[in-house]
Computed example of a mutant assay.
Amino acid sequence: MKIHHLAQNNSVLNTFLSEIRDQKIQKDSMRFRRNIERIGEILAYELSKSLSFHEGFVETPLATKNMHLLSDAIVVCSILRAGLPLHQGLLNYFDKAENAFISAYRHHPNNDEHFDIVVEYVASPNLEGKIMLLADPMLATGQSLVAVFEALRKLGNPKETHIVSVIGAQEGIRFVEKHFPENTHLWIATIDDQLNEKGYIVPGLGDAGDLAFGSKL
């Protein structure tokens, strides 16, 4: 898997990352969603440089101009519900992309720290031969991404798979590397060192779904 770690180079991305981590600023759910969306836009721009383009022509009021235009058919697939603001950021740049949505959540059968990943809902176009952007803002254990990828296999074989995340943990990235195809790309804003005993990223930012949309039962 090829890892593209954007925070290794200083940019305005660091401002958005600092705000989604800041427990005072992140209490503004609208601002939190917008910052995740803006991070998605930055990730989309960087990702676009790796895609295929073809030569096209545009008629301006004065002349014909040759341009290089995106060739690949793209499907943006988000893991509900936390992935929705990130999905919107990607869609802002890939406005002709098809869309897929899939649910995945942690189920604690014994009410302890052990959990299974449950996938219940899938709405997706055919993925055969397309570029799949799999959006999940928090790459913690990596188990959700692997479960979702397995569930999507029956919908076609993508030309390429690109995982798009905001914050990841080293452990989760290693887990994903073992279960995704070798030619997978990971586009991630920043990487933290560890997980806590409950499988949450440290220092991370908390629960992205709750911060974006409110706490759940």
Rank of each mutant, 00 (worst) to 15 (best):
K2H: 09
I3L: 04
I3W: 00
I3H: 00
A7I: 00
V12G: 02
K24N: 15
M30W: 06
N35K: 06
E41P: 05
L43D: 06
A44R: 08
Y45C: 04
S48E: 07
K49S: 06
S50C: 03
H54N: 08
E55I: 10
E55A: 10
E59N: 13
T60L: 13
N66L: 06
H68R: 12
L70F: 12
D72N: 15
I74V: 14
V75Q: 08
V76A: 09
R81I: 00
R81T: 01
G83P: 13
G89T: 07
D95I: 09
K96W: 05
A97V: 01
E98N: 14
Y105P: 12
N111Y: 09
D112A: 05
I117K: 02
V118T: 07
E120I: 00
N126W: 05
E128W: 05
I131N: 05
A135Y: 03
P137N: 05
L139Q: 00
A140T: 07
T141M: 08
G142S: 07
G142V: 04
Q143N: 15
Q143A: 15
Q143I: 03
A147R: 02
L152I: 09
I167W: 05
Q170F: 04
G172N: 11
I173D: 08
F175I: 04
H179N: 15
H179R: 10
P181R: 11
E182N: 10
L186T: 07
A189D: 11
Q194S: 14
V202K: 13
V202P: 10
A208F: 13
A212D: 06
K216R: 14
